[in-house]
Simulated scan of single mutants.
Amino acid sequence: MFKHRDYTLRYQGKCDVELILPNHKIMHNEPLIGQQPFSVLVWNIFKQKRADCINILEQYAHQTKLILLQEAQTTSQLLNFIAENNKIADHVPAYSLNDIYAGVMTITDTTPTQILSFREREPFIRVPKSALITLYPIKNSTQQLLVANIHAINFSLGVKVYRQQIYMLLNYIEQHHGPVILAGDFNAWSRQRLSLLYHLIRSINLKPVNFSNDIRKTFLGRPLDFVFYRGLKLNAANIVNTAASDHNPLFVKFKLD
């Protein structure tokens, strides 16, 4: 594992993996979105343990501007998907095993103008969870789109560490002047966690995406995966029913507000 704490690994086309540090200089910044509607796929991919997961990604590769993965592992299959579709993937490894890194990954067609990576260690099992904030230019606008991808702490007594992890992201989101997407696996499986999550989200004026056919992964009767947004208009929200992971992907379409 790299010695730097605040780093991201970038996989781009057929290029070698690039280490992105907090002071990384952006060389170019093509707009990611404009006035046309755009789609986002959010998915805990279950460490690519099931055979069809890459097929699902292939189906949505050209339909989405953003693919936000949790539990993404840098296996040859996933890296081949990124290269063959000429994508840019920014990955915040939470841990590594046998030179394979696992954590959140944000996949797009455009290099972000800014990257912030976060890691929070699980209190009991001591394995970190990761999160990532990326900013992207908007065509014909001085504003940028902020995208936050999170895999939240799962095993803890109370909500102190859970609050701490989410609050780190919200501090940056609150200061951002422009549209926001916050999404991922929030592990909001208790009443206390879910109440805290909604309280924090409301405090910075984010809205939840609601699903008419809600087949999100649940635990103890509560959904784990969420998409929140601000400064955007929600056009459509669907859930992909699949056995390719233990979570169903969320497929959401937005337009600039």
Results as ranks from 00 to 15, higher is better:
55 N>Q: 14
46 F>Q: 07
20 I>M: 07
65 K>H: 13
43 W>I: 09
73 Q>P: 06
33 I>E: 05
27 M>R: 11
79 L>P: 06
66 L>P: 02
59 Q>T: 03
62 H>P: 01
47 K>E: 04
97 L>P: 01
71 E>T: 11
41 L>P: 03
92 V>L: 14
94 A>D: 10
80 N>V: 02
51 A>H: 07
80 N>G: 00
88 I>Q: 11
45 I>P: 00
37 P>E: 08
30 E>R: 15
75 T>S: 10
47 K>C: 02
93 P>M: 08
81 F>Y: 14
26 I>W: 12
59 Q>R: 15
52 D>H: 13
37 P>V: 10
60 Y>V: 10
87 K>A: 01
60 Y>I: 06
33 I>D: 05
57 L>K: 05
38 F>V: 13
27 M>C: 05
25 K>R: 15
60 Y>K: 11
83 A>T: 01
56 I>K: 05
26 I>F: 08
41 L>A: 05
76 S>M: 10
55 N>H: 11
19 L>M: 13
48 Q>H: 11
82 I>M: 10
29 N>L: 10
23 N>C: 08
82 I>R: 09
38 F>C: 12
36 Q>L: 15
74 T>M: 02
45 I>S: 06
43 W>N: 05
30 E>G: 09
91 H>Y: 04
94 A>Q: 09
38 F>G: 07
87 K>M: 04
54 I>R: 11
90 D>G: 04
68 L>M: 14
46 F>N: 06
29 N>V: 04
85 N>K: 14
